[in-house]
Amino acid sequence: MICKNCGTDNSDNAKFCAYCASPLTTSSEPKKPQNRNKKNNNNKIIGIVLAFLSLVLIIVGGYLVLNGKIFKNEISVDAVTLDGDYEMDGDRYVLSTNENVIVIPNVKSSDSSYELKYEIEDTTAANIKQLGDKCTVIGIKETDANLNIYSVDKILKVLKL
């Protein structure tokens, strides 16, 4: 006997379908068999969509991380040590005229691949020679000037000279 619900061929004396458990009757034609693969096709489509979305998220996330939009390299200069002849006048470093002083910043960074740069606002006040993360202020003249310590385009510390 053919099941009206799923189209499975059952034994003639069966009262219920062996595949879908629907009641079996002898009075009418069987229904079209249900597509057993329909559920599997839906699962495949959902799986493909999820895989595509995962790939997009990985690509976008990788781009954001590599370009510093997420997990930016935070860098700061908390303190500065000067090696050479100087005095303090409040928060101003008073350097001896025509002496060389080495500026050593205390850098805190979440990544070791940072690069510091130094710039003196009044270029007539002194010359600067960068030595890795440190710098030497050469030949300071008696004038007020600011020494900016920065990374990329962000000023991290300003020293009043």
Rank of each mutant, 00 (worst) to 15 (best):
G7L: 02
Y63K: 05
D85E: 14
T123K: 15
T123D: 15
V77S: 06
V80F: 04
E87S: 07
N67D: 03
T8Q: 13
M1L: 14
I104F: 07
N100H: 05
A21L: 11
K38Q: 11
D111A: 11
I128Q: 00
T25H: 04
K108W: 03
E121R: 13
I75F: 00
P33C: 06
N40E: 13
D122I: 02
K129R: 11
N42Y: 11
K108G: 05
D122R: 09
G132S: 08
L24G: 00
D133I: 08
D78S: 13
G61H: 02
V56I: 14
C135E: 00
N73Q: 13
A14K: 07
F16I: 05
P105V: 08
Y150I: 09
S112V: 12
K129N: 14
K15E: 06
Y19H: 15
I155M: 13
A18V: 15
P23C: 03
K160S: 14
P30N: 07
T25I: 11
K15L: 15
K160C: 05
N98G: 06
L159R: 02
S113V: 12
I138R: 01
I140M: 11
C3Q: 00
N146I: 03
N10S: 00
D9H: 12
S151P: 03
S54Q: 06
L82N: 00
I104Q: 04
T123W: 06
V60G: 05
D111R: 07
C3A: 00
K134R: 14
Y150V: 05
K141C: 00
R36V: 15
I2L: 14
I138F: 03
Q34M: 10
C3K: 00
N5R: 05
I58D: 02
D85S: 12
A14C: 08
D122E: 08
D89P: 02
V77Q: 01
A79H: 11
G47Y: 03
K32P: 15
V60P: 04
K44G: 06
Y114T: 04
L53H: 02
K44Y: 09
N73C: 07
S96H: 08
G47E: 04
K129G: 10
K39W: 12
R36Y: 07
M88R: 08
S28C: 12
L55A: 10
P33V: 03
I46Q: 13
N10T: 03
Y19P: 09
E29V: 12
Q130A: 12
V60A: 11
R36C: 13
T81S: 09
I2R: 13
K44D: 12
I59T: 09
I75C: 01
I70G: 00
A126I: 10
D85P: 09
N67A: 02
